[in-house]
Design a protein around this nucleic acid. Sequence first.
DNA 1: CTTGTCTATGCAACGAGTTGCATAGAAGGA
DNA 2: TCCTTCTATGCAACTCGTTGCATAGACAAG
Lengths: 188, 188
Amino acid sequence: MALDHAILVSLLERPGSGYELARRFERSIGYFWTATHQQIYRVLKRMESDGWIDVREVPQQGRPDKKEYSVAALGRTALSEWLHQPIEPESVRHDLAVKIRGAAFDDPAALIREVERYRQVHNERLDHYLAGEVRDFTGPQAAHAPGPPDAGRELQHVVLRGGIAYERMTLAWLDDVLATLRGLASDR
Amino acid sequence: MALDHAILVSLLERPGSGYELARRFERSIGYFWTATHQQIYRVLKRMESDGWIDVREVPQQGRPDKKEYSVAALGRTALSEWLHQPIEPESVRHDLAVKIRGAAFDDPAALIREVERYRQVHNERLDHYLAGEVRDFTGPQAAHAPGPPDAGRELQHVVLRGGIAYERMTLAWLDDVLATLRGLASDR
DNA sequence: CTTGTCTATGCAACGAGTTGCATAGAAGGA
DNA sequence: TCCTTCTATGCAACTCGTTGCATAGACAAG
């Protein structure tokens, strides 16, 4: 159970409301940890009542007020404890892999269109990552920043590089999958 | 919810008991779909009462009797329907990525040992995959098999190639992570 | 003959995650 | 004015997944 900790990290990087967190989980964080807004609101409520985070009512103009959360001392302690525990093996759920093996008992050719669409989704995600890398991690302050190198920045960058590597690997594999499916379709 | 379908595919590839399925989910299938034995027994029971699968009591010698499940017509239909639906985006949960970003607010150097251990786990998994590939997908019957090419075999192989690609990508990325963490530790 | 291990199945309780629905303020367009 | 969209928060019900525990046959080691 680490949604708590994912939220704590996100709030340390920048305090925000449940709604804002939900949007982050659709973007950057969501690529290695998924969560819906209901889940997030529930966890925020629990962490608040446990004293892990503080709330501040923020009146806004042009939109409804919001509750801005930030990490309290207890939350930092909890996060630190978790960080020093062994890394859990990833829990994975790849529909596509199941479908590929299942296609042997159905029609492999029927999968081709779907895999093509799926490939496109990953291609777009790669472009999105690459654009983010250019935007956030290149330019004057990147290589020889004045002052101390920002650890948070470098760590965010290495995670992003992982996402990029993952998408590139996936695209290459999907090409392999498509070639295999097409081969089976032509010499059936 | 596709544990049902993962089990159906596994039973189509080879009928088996709940116990045997649980062991498969620790090995091959488990690398892209995780499940515990309790989950499996529960789903088997439900699928049986829905008429998706058939049971057969198999007396054994030297060990307790078992119930061997196989896919019934209704199960095949259900699987086929699922196969023709759009592929769900993978749901991902990467503890490590969260920890790396969290390390910015704690001690990056403290992560190094854990990442090294984690790297070793993935290295062993890669070796395991490669050994399986040699065992199951090379040799006389692989390239120019007598008779029709076995679609199931080729599809299983392409899924395995995906696993191999994933592990290689992960190892390269973990080296990147380690270099980054060591850089932060030395010029802190 | 007790203890431990492997095969084999399962219950009960709990916690995590999903789905559907509901409310409400503010802005913009038909 | 009404309808839609975006921001913002939340409840209720349900399903999925995890953890702890329990049972039991067969064998092997001490």
